[in-house]
Structure formats: structure tokens, C-alpha cells
Amino acid sequence: MFVSYRAMDERVVRAMRDAGFQVTPAQARLSQRIADDGSRLTDLAHQAQVTKQTASVLVAGLEAQGIVERVPDPADGRARLIRFTPRGKAAARRALEVVGEVEREWEEHLGPELTASLRAALTTLGQVTDPYR
């Protein structure tokens, strides 16, 4: 599972770089966890299983490229949300396109039944082993 995940991860990062987004694999993994309406840094760190300091460095790199921005949290004036900029939304759309391409390739190799079974099994495992549920 890890080898397949890393292969997809590398394809996404390569496509991002080809599209002009100079993201690292760690930045890509963190950014895939940003909620549509924004996420707090502590939540991103927790979900990505990195320290708050690491998440802050990754976000700073994304911010420097204009992919994300920090805005006040309307629910808590003391907190900030990390959210995608229009440029970042374009990057996220491209990443999702690549993920879709890879998933279609895998389905061509496995067939629709095995793909559906694999997806169901991985979803179930994720629910059982997710430390954040």
C-alpha cells in the first residue's frame, strides 16, 4: 500500500511542478487536508501527524508561493485560518485531476470489482485505524 501511495504522491508533486507550483511532498500532504472554508494550523498539524512548528514552516512555504493565505477565523478573533488562494485552488484542482488519472489507471489494471473491493477495504481500515476519529 505504501509503494502505491508514494507512486501516486510522486505523480501529483511532479504534475504540480510541471504546472508551475513548486511544492514539496510534505507541503502537498499538508495542503490536501485544508478544508474548503479554511483550517487552523493546529488542526492541519494534527491531521498530517507533524508538529505545529513543522506545519507552520510548510504553510509559510505555501504562503510564499501564493498558494495559501492566513486569514482571521470568524469563529475566534484570536485564531487564524489557512485557506487556499485562487492560485492554490487551481493547484488543488490539478492535484485532484492527477489523483483521478492514477485511480483510473489502477482500475484498468485491477478491474472495477477488485477496485471497488479495495476501496471499501481501505476505507474500513482507515475508519478502524484513524487516530483522529
Rank of each mutant, 00 (worst) to 15 (best):
L114H: 09
L41K: 09
D36G: 11
S4M: 07
L30N: 03
S117V: 05
A55G: 12
Q22T: 10
S31M: 14
Q47P: 00
S56A: 15
V59P: 08
Q65R: 06
V59F: 01
G111W: 08
G61P: 07
Q127I: 10
V13I: 05
S117P: 00
R94D: 00
G61A: 09
R14T: 14
R93I: 06
D18K: 10
A19R: 12
E97H: 09
Y5V: 13
Q27L: 00
E101P: 05
V99F: 06
L110I: 03
R11N: 04
F84T: 01
L125N: 01
P25M: 06
T124L: 10
D9F: 08
E113C: 00
D130Y: 03
P72Q: 08
L44T: 07
E63R: 11
Q32W: 13
T24C: 11
Q53L: 08
G111H: 09
R78Y: 06
Q65I: 00
R11M: 12
I67G: 00
A60Q: 09
V23E: 02
V102Q: 09
L41V: 06
M8G: 12
Q49P: 00
G38A: 05
A15K: 01
Q47H: 11
Y132S: 12
F2N: 12
Y132E: 14
L125V: 11
Q32M: 15
S39T: 09
T123F: 04
F84M: 09
G111E: 08
G61I: 02
Y5G: 11
R87T: 15
P72S: 12
G20A: 07
D36N: 10
G111A: 08
G77K: 10
Q32G: 15
E63K: 13
G38H: 02
V50G: 07
I34Y: 04
A75C: 03
I67F: 02
D18S: 11
Q32A: 14
V23G: 01
R14K: 15
R17C: 01
R119P: 00
R29Q: 12
P112G: 08
D37E: 11
G20K: 02
V68K: 08
L125Q: 08
I67T: 06
V13S: 04
G66A: 07
G20I: 04
V128E: 11
E103F: 14
E103Y: 13
Q127G: 15
R83N: 02
E101H: 10
G38L: 05
L30G: 03
L96N: 13
T123R: 13
R14V: 09
S117F: 04
H109G: 12
A120T: 04
V12W: 02
P72C: 06
T54G: 04
R78Q: 14
V50N: 05
G20R: 04
G38I: 03
A64V: 00
R70T: 05
T85Q: 03
V57Q: 15
A48G: 03
G61H: 02
G77S: 12
E69H: 05
Q47K: 12
V50M: 06
Y5L: 13
R29E: 13
T24P: 10
S117W: 06
A48C: 10
A28P: 00
I34S: 04
L110N: 00
A90F: 09
E97C: 05
D130W: 03
T24Y: 10
R78H: 13
G61D: 07
L110S: 04
P25E: 05
P86H: 08
R133F: 02
F2M: 14
A15L: 04
L114I: 14
L125I: 09
